[in-house]
Design a binder for these strands. Structure first.
Length: 230
DNA sequence: CTTTGGATCGTCT
DNA sequence: GACGATCCAAAGG
């Protein structure tokens, strides 16, 4: 993974990251879905309105990991692009698990055991105990183990599976510090990746800046997959 | 199968 | 004070 490659426009870099490996300690996943965010030129980018404490990493050198926290409970991971001083990034949206599947599953299901029944709060859905549910209900494992295809098939899921939190914001993905690394094992990106608009955006969602590996079962939101052209 | 609503809190207005 | 680059389960067809 030459750093110079990552210094380019996120729209150019993003599809090139398909089929690269993301490594976190013993856990390895192959990148199968990405989105580009073009900083100051992109209304949907966290950096559109300039530098803040939260998005500072996006303004740093390329090849670093930008991690943000959202929806009060989820983390998402990006590869920083463009030269230092210019904000831009590629959001990693899905991985195909390669190794360390047990650790990924454990990380993804730990909240079932960890979730203590909240005192007064009631909840209709989710894993918190609803009123009247016995305590042992939340201390047991989920009814079924998560299928492999759901371990890292989403931007927040992959962070949970690999244990990526805001503590890892800013680490260099090319040197492997803190156990996080981007690796090229020789598998080329798809010649003809799937392309669509980005997911979950209020602004600029129609721009075709989402790419995935065609046919991969780990890609999120399969229904949104529409390959342009022929 | 699709749709809907709740969870939950850091960040910026 | 409002709102997410989301996920999950329950409800509805």
């Amino acid at each position: 993974m030459p750093r110079g490659l990552l210094a380019g426009d996120p729209v150019d870099v993003a599809p090139l990251l398909l089929n690269k490996l993301l490594v976190r300690d013993g856990r390895v996943g192959r990148i199968v879905e990405v989105e580009a965010y073009r900083g100051a030129e992109d209304p949907a980018s966290h950096a559109f309105r300039g530098r803040t404490a939260r998005n500072a990493t996006m303004f740093g050198p390329p090849g670093r990991l930008y991690v943000y926290f959202t929806y009060g409970m989820h983390f998402c991971a990006n590869v920083v692009c463009w030269p230092e001083g210019v904000a831009g990034a590629v959001l990693l949206r899905a991985l195909a698990p390669v190794s360390g599947l047990d650790a990924m599953r454990e990380a993804r299901t730990a909240s079932w055991r960890g979730a203590a029944p909240a005192g007064g709060g009631r909840s209709a859905g989710g894993r918190a105990a609803a009123g009247g549910v016995p305590p042992d209900r939340v201390t047991t494992a989920p009814p079924k183990a998560l299928p492999d295809r759901q371990l890292a098939s989403g931007p927040a899921r992959l962070c949970q599976a690999l244990g990526i939190t805001r503590e890892l914001d800013g680490v260099d993905l090319l040197t492997g510090h803190r156990g996080v690394r981007l690796l090229d094992d020789g598998v080329a990106p798809p010649e003809r990746p799937g392309v669509s608009g980005r997911v979950g955006l209020r602004l600029a969602g129609e721009l075709p800046w989402r790419w995935w590996v065609p046919g991969d079962v780990n890609v999120s939101r399969a229904k949104a997959q529409v390959v342009g052209g022929r």
